[in-house]
Simulated assay, not measured.
Amino acid sequence: MKIIIQTPDFKARQTLIDFVEEKVGKLESLSDRILEGRVNLKLDNSETGENKICEIKLVIPGHDLFASRQSDTFENAVQQSIDAVKHQLERWKDSKK
């Protein structure tokens, strides 16, 4: 699986990039049909502390999965997005049986 990480609003630390690659890479063990994982990390211009947004799109032939979560840290937003995509992936696999 190819992992593409985009951070249009800021320069990401290498530790954050490594964290995202590790967590998203684990999704590959759930399905061998995943071709690509696209992760978009953005900053929201809100006054609240929860201004970090993570969007994950898994590219699967014939069906793409998408989740977006907002949190106070990128790590939390990434983990919440992965949990949401994992749930969608499990539902998708059940519907294929």
Results as ranks from 00 to 15, higher is better:
K96M: 12
W92G: 13
K23W: 01
N76H: 11
P61Q: 06
D32Q: 12
A77M: 09
E28I: 00
I53W: 04
L58D: 02
R91W: 06
M1R: 12
I4D: 03
H63V: 12
F10S: 08
E55W: 00
Q88W: 01
I60K: 10
N51L: 04
E75D: 06
S46R: 13
K2A: 00
E21A: 01
Q14C: 02
V85G: 13
E55V: 00
D83Y: 06
I34D: 13
L41C: 04
E28F: 01
V24M: 02
S29W: 03
N76R: 12
I82W: 04
S68A: 11
M1L: 10
A84V: 10
F74N: 04
L30M: 13
L30R: 13
I56M: 03
E75T: 12
K52V: 06
V24C: 04
D83P: 02
I60P: 15
N40H: 01
A84Q: 13
R33G: 05
V85E: 11
P61R: 03
L43W: 01
G62M: 01
V24L: 02
K2M: 01
T73E: 10
V78L: 14
F66S: 06
K2D: 08
I56L: 08
L43E: 14
I53N: 14
Q70L: 06
P8G: 04
D83W: 05
I34T: 09
F10Q: 09
K86M: 07
I3M: 05
S68K: 15
A12E: 10
E28L: 01
D72G: 06
M1D: 05
L65I: 03
S81T: 14
L27G: 03
S29R: 12
L16Q: 11
D44M: 10
T73R: 06
Q80W: 00
R91K: 13
H63P: 07
D9W: 06
V20I: 06
C54K: 02
I4A: 03
K11P: 02
S95L: 15
N76P: 08
K93V: 08
A12D: 10
V20N: 02
I60C: 14
V39F: 02
D72M: 10
L58R: 07
E50V: 03
I3L: 07
K23V: 03
F74C: 06
V24N: 00
E75S: 06
Q88G: 11
I60A: 13
